[in-house]
């Protein structure tokens, strides 16, 4: 259902983009240096596939962990920040402030402080995908579902856990969409981090390929990133759907 649709949609987009590049290449009679030919791309693909695939998996792993961290963080801040109390607005203000700094400016500091290992990549991935998540979570959590909450409120049964549960359940679709969307951001964040400073992952490999002006490698990397991301996002959507269904079936 959702999963295979995501994958074939990605295939269509990728093939169209590559076909477009080839069209320009042959239309303008450009050399393989400017735009690699199909044979070149194919050879690069078969040669680099396993190496790049493990790079992408490496990046993906960091992105997924980063995303999970930011989901928890966003839920935490979103739930605390949903109330109009002092601590609520303080948490919200702090959360917004951290995000006001562009990650490109923060990244060097992070790498200097934490080195160019996995922790830096993780932190940057989490920071990049955290903000949109937080905005949605705060939005969802501070919007009362009066038609459901009224009864609990007037009968004195409302607890914060129940309030969170009601609002999350009623906005499950929105939450799933945002979480799936933030996967792209986490991945992009990790790649940017690797590109800037890390010693592993597909972002690092892309940087090396760029050093060597090797567009064929970039195309293969993009393909692997895209397909992995599609599968992951599809899975997230399926999980969201199953949670909603399972929750509803209890």
């Amino acid at each position: 259902m959702l999963l295979h649709r995501r994958i074939y949609q990605f295939f269509i987009i990728y093939l169209l983009a590559v076909a477009f590049l080839f069209l320009i290449k042959y239309g303008l009679d450009l050399s393989d240096y400017v735009i690699p030919g199909p044979v070149d791309v194919w050879h690069t693909g078969t040669r680099e596939f396993s190496r790049y695939f493990s790079d992408v998996m490496n990046t993906m792993m960091v992105a997924v962990i980063g995303q999970v961290i930011s989901i928890f963080l966003a839920l935490l801040v979103g739930i605390t920040g949903r109330q109009a109390t002092w601590i609520g607005s303080f948490t919200k203000a702090a959360a917004y402030n951290v995000q006001a700094y562009p990650i490109v400016a923060l990244a060097p500091i992070i790498f200097i402080l934490l080195g160019d290992g996995i922790i830096s990549r993780l932190l940057i991935a989490a920071m990049i995908c955290y903000f949109p998540l937080l905005l949605s979570v705060i939005g969802i959590m501070s919007e009362p579902i009066s038609d459901i909450e009224h009864f609990y409120r007037v009968t004195g049964r409302m607890r914060w856990q129940l309030e969170v549960k009601i609002r999350a359940f009623e906005n499950m679709n929105k939450l799933t969409t945002v979480v799936a969307g933030s996967a792209t951001l986490a991945m992009a964040g990790t790649i940017v981090a690797e590109f800037i400073a890390a010693n592993a992952g597909i972002g690092y490999s892309i940087r090396i390929a760029l050093f060597q002006s090797d567009l064929a490698k970039i195309l293969i990397a993009l393909f692997l990133i895209g397909i992995t991301l599609s599968v992951y996002q599809g899975l997230l959507e399926v999980i969201g759907y199953l949670i909603e269904k399972g929750w509803a079936a209890k």
């Binding site: 038609d147 459901i148 009224h150 009864f151 549960k165 009601i166 359940f169 009623e170 929750w247 509803a248 209890k250």
Partner: peptide, 8 residues
């Protein structure tokens, strides 16, 4: 217009 929660 009140509703019951959807999970049960």
């Amino acid at each position: 217009l009140e509703r019951l929660p959807g999970w049960s």
